[in-house]
Design a protein around this nucleic acid. Structure first.
Length: 724
DNA sequence: TCACTGTAATTTTTT
DNA sequence: ATTACAGTGA
C-alpha cells in the first residue's frame, strides 16, 4: 500500500480537462486522474467524496477513451444514485448514454430482468419488500404447524436474509445432529425458497444473490460483462456486505479496475450485514491497490473537527485519518445539561427560536426515533415548522399496497402474497375456511394459490356459496387482466381501483382516514402517470412500475420544500449537513445504547456519534439529561462516555437564560437526595425558597420548591440549590 | 367478522 | 407510556 502522486500525468492531461480538475484540491485531483488501477479513496466526512467520484467518472469518459458503456457506478441508496447521475450530467453537460449507474439492488434487478432465463426466473417475477417477505414467512411457519411464538417470522426473516447476504443457500449449511434450532431455521429457509421460486417472488437479498449466482454460473454472461465493464466505481464502500463484495469481485474479474470510495469511520450499518473489513482489508484483497486519503474538510469549523477527531481517536480498529480545515476555529462546541427530557427539548427549541438563519439549516439528531416526540410537541408549542424523517413511506402505505397487490396478481397470477392480501378485500365473503382449503390444495399439489383456486372451482370441490364467491373472484381477476391489457399505465391503475371497488371500500372508513387514504390513491394514479419507463430490459410498463414501487419506496412526507427544522435519527443524518446541529440524549444507555454496550459494539456507537458531530457546519450543541422518562418510568441518567472523551477546552457549558413562572413543577432530585420537606433552600438567582412536597424515594424522588419571589413557583437550576 | 382485552416489547433502516 | 398483536366472546 502506498500513497501515489504522479504530477506529470496530471500536468500532461490537464490541458484537455482543466474544467474537471480546476475546482479540486491536490489530493482530490490525484484521485481523479490516477492511472487505471484499483483505487481506495478514504474520504473523511465533508471531504468532497461524491465530488471525487463524479469527477473521476467525467475524467475517465473524457481522457481514457472510456466509453460510458464501459462504466459501472454503484451506490447504496436511490437518493445517492440520483444525486450522482445529476452531478455527472451537470458536469459533462450531457447524459452519458450506456453507462450503468444505480444501487446494488437496481443493478442486480436489471441483470435479472435481462437474463431471467439464465437466472431461472419467470419473466414477470415480482419483488417482495420486507413486509411481503414477513407475511410469506408467517404463512410458511403456520403451514409447518410450528408455535408462532417460538418461531417468529421476524426471526426467520433475519436468519434468511443474513444467510443470503453471506451467499449461503440452505444446502450450504452444515447442521449438527442436535442443533434443533438451526435445523428448523434451515427447513423454513428451504421451504421459503421453494415457495418463492414457485410463485415467482424475489426478495431484496435474493436480487443480489441470484444475480451473483447467475453471473458466476454462466461463463458466457460473465465473459460478456468482463469485456464490458472496464471501470467499476463504488460509493460508501464501508457499507458493503458480503454478497455485495463478492458481486463486485466477480464482476471486476481480472480486467476491470475498482475505484472505491468510503470512510471506515462512518461505518454504522454492521447490524444489517455491512462489513467494515471490506474497506479495511481492501488493499490486501486486491493487488496493486492505490490508497488516497481525503482529509481536508470543507464543511465544519476547526473546533467541530477537533471534537470529531478527538472522539473517533478512541476507536482502535480504524485505518486512521485526521480531518483538518483551512477555515476558522469558529464557536466552541456547546454542552447543555438538562434536568429532564422536557427541559432538554425546551432548551433546544428556545435556541432554535433565537436562530436567525434558515430553519432547514437546523437539525435535531437523536439515537432512537422515540426521542422525536417530545421535540415535536415543543416545536408545535412554539409554532416552529419541522419535518421528521423516517416513518412509513408512500409505497408502504396499506391502501397503496392493496392496489399494488391487485396489479401484481394481474401481472403474475401466481403471486401468492398478492393473492392472500386481496382475496377478501373488499369483503366478498371468502372467509378463512375457504382460504384454508385453497392453501391446503396448493400445498398438496405444489401449485400457487391462484392455480389451486382455479382447480377447486373447476372440480366444484367447494360448497355452493364458497364456490360462487370464489368463482366470482376468479372471473373478476381474469376480466380485469383482459380489459386493461392495452390501456396506459395510469388508466390501468384507475381501472383496477374502480372495478375492484377498492376506492368505494376506503370511502367507508372514518372521515379523516378515508380522506387520507383516497388522497394516497389519487397520488398513486399520479405516480403511475408520471412513471416513465423506457421499455428496456424487456419489461412491460406494469411490471416495471411494480418493480419501481418495491425498489424505490419513495419519501414519507410532502413538505419537503418548506423551510423547517429537520428532525432525524443519527443513522438517517449520514451524508447530510446543517449549519446548526443539536445532538441530543447523550446519556449512557441511550447513546451509547444499552444493547450496544451489552454486545460490546461501542466502536460503532462512537462512529455514529462521529457521524452526528461531523454533520455540523457552524454550530454544534451536545445535550444530555439527568433523568429521562423511559417505558413509563422516570430513570436517572449519567452523561455519555462520549462526552468525557472530548477535551474540555473545546467545550463550553451553557444554560438556558430564561426564567419562567409556572405552576407546580417537578424536579428530579438526582444527587440531592438529602433534601427534606420543610427545609429552606437557597438558589443563586431566585433567592430563598422552601420545599413543599417530596415524592418517591432515592434518586428518582421529586421535590416541589416554592421560592419566596412573590407567590409564584419557579423553575430553577437545580444544581444551584443549597440547604440553608 | 368485529370489537374488546390482556400481554409483551420497546435501536438503528435501505433495498 | 405506547403500541402491536394474538386470543376471545358476541
Amino acid at each position: 500500500m502506498q500513497e501515489i502522486f504522479n504530477p506529470s500525468r496530471c500536468d500532461l492531461i490537464s490541458m484537455d480537462v482543466s474544467h474537471l480538475l480546476d475546482s479540486l484540491n491536490d489530493t482530490q485531483r490525484k484521485a481523479v486522474c490516477a492511472s487505471p488501477e484499483h483505487m481506495l479513496v478514504l474520504a473523511g466526512a465533508g471531504s468532497g467524496k461524491t465530488r471525487v467520484l463524479v469527477h473521476r467518472i467525467a475524467f475517465l469518459l473524457e481522457t481514457e477513451q472510456t466509453r460510458p458503456y464501459n462504466l459501472l457506478a454503484v451506490t447504496f441508496t436511490n437518493k445517492a444514485a440520483r444525486e450522482m447521475q445529476y452531478r455527472i450530467e451537470t458536469l459533462l453537460r450531457r447524459s452519458p448514454q450506456g453507462m450503468w449507474a444505480g444501487t446494488f439492488h437496481g443493478i442486480s434487478h436489471r441483470l435479472l430482468r435481462m437474463h431471467w432465463q439464465e437466472a431461472k426466473l419467470p419473466q414477470t417475477f415480482q419483488i417482495l419488500d420486507s413486509e411481503d417477505q414477513d407475511r410469506t414467512l408467517k404463512r410458511i411457519i403456520k403451514s409447518l404447524q410450528l408455535d408462532e411464538k417460538v418461531w417468529t417470522s421476524k426471526q426467520s426473516q433475519s436468519f434468511i436474509n443474513s444467510q443470503k447476504d453471506k451467499a449461503i443457500r440452505p444446502h450450504d449449511i452444515l447442521i449438527e445432529e442436535n442443533d434443533f434450532w438451526l435445523k428448523q431455521m434451515v427447513q423454513i429457509y428451504q421451504m421459503y425458497e421453494e415457495h418463492c421460486q414457485r410463485t415467482g417472488a424475489v426478495d431484496f437479498a435474493e436480487l443480489l444473490l441470484r444475480s451473483y449466482e447467475t453471473l458466476r454460473d454462466n461463463e458466457s454472461l460473465l465473459t460478456h460483462y468482463h469485456a464490458r465493464f472496464r471501470h467499476i466505481l463504488v460509493d460508501e464502500f464501508q457499507d458493503t456486505n458480503t454478497i455485495q463484495y463478492l458481486f463486485l469481485k466477480l464482476l471486476a474479474g481480472e480486467q476491470a479496475k475498482l475505484f472505491v470510495v468510503g470512510d471506515d469511520d462512518q461505518s454504522i450499518y454492521s447490524w444489517r450485514g455491512a462489513k467494515v473489513e471490506n474497506i479495511q482489508n481492501f488493499s490486501q484483497n486486491f493487488e496493486n491497490t492505490k490508497l488516497i486519503r481525503l482529509e481536508q474538510n470543507y464543511r465544519s469549523t476547526g473546533t467541530i473537527l477537533e471534537v470529531a477527531n478527538a472522539l473517533i481517536n478512541h476507536n482502535r480498529q480504524r485505518l486512521g485519518k485526521r480531518l483538518w480545515t483551512e477555515g476558522k476555529a469558529g464557536e466552541p462546541v456547546y454542552i447543555y445539561k438538562a434536568y429532564s427530557e422536557l427541559d432538554e427539548a425546551d432548551f433546544v427549541v428556545a435556541k432554535i427560536k433565537a436562530w436567525e438563519g434558515k430553519l432547514s439549516q437546523v437539525a435535531i439528531l437523536y439515537r432512537t426515533s422515540s426521542q422525536s416526540r417530545i421535540f415535536e410537541e415543543k416545536l408545535i408549542g412554539k409554532n416552529i415548522p419541522y419535518r421528521i424523517y423516517g416513518g412509513i413511506r408512500f409505497y408502504e402505505r396499506a391502501e397503496v399496497k392493496d392496489v399494488l397487490a391487485y396489479l401484481r396478481l394481474i401481472a403474475l397470477h401466481d403471486d401468492d402474497g398478492a393473492f392472500e392480501r386481496i382475496i377478501n378485500l373488499p369483503k366478498r365473503g371468502i372467509g378463512q375456511k375457504t382460504l384454508e382449503t385453497i392453501r391446503a390444495t396448493a400445498r398438496k399439489t405444489g401449485v400457487s394459490l391462484w392455480q389451486a383456486a382455479n382447480q377447486l372451482t373447476q372440480d366444484k370441490a367447494l360448497s355452493g356459496r364458497a364456490h360462487n364467491t370464489l368463482q366470482t373472484f376468479i372471473l373478476l381477476i381474469q376480466q380485469i387482466t383482459q380489459s386493461i391489457k392495452d390501456l396506459s399505465l395510469k388508466e390501468q391503475v384507475k381501472q383496477v381501483m374502480q372495478v375492484t371497488e377498492l376506492s368505494e371500500h376506503y370511502k367507508k372508513a372514518g372521515k379523516e382516514e378515508a380522506q387520507r387514504r383516497l388522497e394516497n390513491l389519487d397520488e398513486l394514479v399520479t405516480a403511475a402517470e408520471q412513471f416513465s419507463h423506457s421499455g428496456k430490459d424487456g419489461m412491460d410498463p406494469l411490471t416495471a412500475f411494480l418493480a419501481h414501487s418495491a425498489l424505490e419506496a419513495g419519501d414519507a412526507q410532502a413538505n419537503e420544500f418548506s423551510d423547517c427544522v429537520q428532525l432525524m435519527t443519527l443513522h438517517l443524518a449520514k451524508g447530510l449537513e446543517f449549519d446548526s446541529v443539536f445532538l441530543c440524549g447523550l446519556e449512557e444507555g441511550l447513546f451509547p445504547h444499552q444493547n450496544s454496550i451489552k454486545e460490546g459494539n461501542l466502536e460503532e456507537e462512537r462512529r455514529l456519534c462521529y457521524v452526528g458531530i461531523t454533520r455540523a457546519q457552524q454550530q454544534l450543541y451536545l445535550t444530555h439529561s439527568e433523568s429521562r422518562y423511559r417505558w413509563g418510568l422516570r430513570e436517572s441518567a449519567r452523561p455519555s462516555r462520549f462526552l468525557s472523551e472530548i477535551p474540555v477546552e473545546l467545550l463550553e457549558n451553557v444554560k438556558l437564560q430564561t426564567t419562567r413562572s409556572i405552576g407546580n413543577h417537578h424536579f428530579n432530585t438526582g444527587k440531592l437526595i438529602d433534601f427534606e420537606v420543610g427545609q429552606w433552600v437557597k438558589h443563586g438567582k431566585f433567592g430563598e425558597g422552601i420545599i413543599l412536597e417530596r415524592e418517591g424515594e432515592g434518586e428518582l424522588s421529586r421535590i416541589y420548591v416554592k421560592f419566596s419571589e412573590g407567590s409564584k413557583w419557579l423553575l430553577a437550576a437545580f444544581a444551584n440549590l443549597e440547604i440553608i
